[in-house]
Amino acid sequence: MLLQIDLQKEEPIYMQIVHQIIEGIAKNELKPGDDLPSVRSLGADIGINFHTVNKAYQILKQEGFILIHRQKGVVIHPDAAYLANAAYVEKLKRDIRPIIAEAAARNLPIREMEKLVETLYNEMKGE
């Protein structure tokens, strides 16, 4: 999986890394047990400070998507595709609330929003 970092994007680089790795897991491009580059290696490969990569990896570790071993390095968590629990659903509600609010403020019909969500979800799942 090749990360596409956009230095001109408003989204911080570390979050671009986080989102792209999660998307790789969702699309089954990254499978449980797959190795990821070390912090220093990934930083060098994409030309960014290794502290930025470390911040992304720490978020992914905290969210349960990766494991960081001193000897084995960084790997996709064996249970990375765990089921959504109540806490995750609450987090999801908080995260998408501003997006839904903007869509409603712009009078985007709910059916259009539903189609958009369904299309993107199916794209992630390869359907």
Results as ranks from 00 to 15, higher is better:
residue 1 M to H: 06
residue 1 M to D: 03
residue 1 M to V: 09
residue 2 L to I: 08
residue 2 L to R: 15
residue 6 D to P: 05
residue 6 D to T: 10
residue 6 D to H: 12
residue 6 D to A: 09
residue 11 E to W: 00
residue 11 E to R: 11
residue 11 E to M: 15
residue 12 P to T: 03
residue 13 I to E: 01
residue 14 Y to F: 10
residue 14 Y to E: 11
residue 14 Y to T: 00
residue 15 M to Y: 01
residue 15 M to N: 05
residue 16 Q to N: 12
residue 16 Q to I: 10
residue 16 Q to V: 10
residue 17 I to S: 00
residue 17 I to Y: 00
residue 18 V to L: 07
residue 19 H to I: 03
residue 19 H to C: 07
residue 21 I to Q: 01
residue 21 I to D: 01
residue 22 I to M: 11
residue 22 I to N: 01
residue 23 E to A: 10
residue 25 I to T: 03
residue 25 I to Q: 01
residue 26 A to I: 01
residue 26 A to C: 10
residue 33 G to C: 06
residue 33 G to D: 06
residue 33 G to Q: 03
residue 33 G to L: 04
residue 34 D to Q: 06
residue 35 D to E: 13
residue 35 D to R: 12
residue 37 P to N: 07
residue 37 P to D: 09
residue 38 S to P: 00
residue 38 S to T: 12
residue 39 V to I: 13
residue 40 R to Q: 10
residue 40 R to N: 13
residue 42 L to P: 00
residue 43 G to D: 02
residue 46 I to Y: 04
residue 46 I to L: 10
residue 47 G to D: 12
residue 47 G to I: 14
residue 47 G to H: 11
residue 48 I to Q: 03
residue 50 F to S: 13
residue 50 F to G: 00
residue 52 T to K: 04
residue 52 T to Y: 00
residue 54 N to E: 14
residue 57 Y to C: 00
residue 57 Y to A: 00
residue 57 Y to R: 00
residue 60 L to K: 04
residue 61 K to V: 02
residue 62 Q to G: 05
residue 62 Q to N: 10
residue 62 Q to M: 04
residue 65 F to T: 00
residue 65 F to V: 03
residue 66 I to V: 12
residue 67 L to N: 11
residue 68 I to T: 14
residue 70 R to L: 01
residue 70 R to M: 02
residue 71 Q to M: 13
residue 72 K to E: 13
residue 73 G to L: 02
residue 74 V to C: 07
residue 74 V to K: 03
residue 75 V to R: 12
residue 76 I to D: 04
residue 77 H to C: 04
residue 77 H to G: 06
residue 77 H to R: 12
residue 78 P to S: 10
residue 80 A to P: 06
residue 80 A to W: 02
residue 82 Y to S: 15
residue 82 Y to P: 01
residue 82 Y to C: 14
residue 82 Y to D: 13
residue 83 L to R: 11
residue 84 A to W: 08
residue 84 A to M: 15
residue 91 K to N: 13
residue 93 K to R: 12
residue 93 K to T: 09
residue 94 R to I: 04
residue 94 R to N: 12
residue 95 D to G: 11
residue 95 D to Q: 11
residue 97 R to Q: 11
residue 97 R to A: 11
residue 98 P to N: 06
residue 98 P to C: 08
residue 99 I to D: 01
residue 100 I to C: 07
residue 103 A to L: 15
residue 104 A to K: 14
residue 106 R to H: 08
residue 106 R to Q: 15
residue 109 P to D: 15
residue 110 I to L: 15
residue 110 I to T: 12
residue 111 R to F: 14
residue 111 R to K: 15
residue 112 E to V: 15
residue 113 M to E: 03
residue 113 M to W: 06
residue 113 M to N: 02
residue 113 M to G: 10
residue 114 E to G: 09
residue 115 K to W: 02
residue 116 L to K: 09
residue 117 V to G: 13
residue 118 E to F: 07
residue 118 E to G: 07
residue 119 T to I: 07
residue 123 E to L: 09
residue 124 M to V: 02
residue 126 G to L: 05
residue 127 E to V: 09
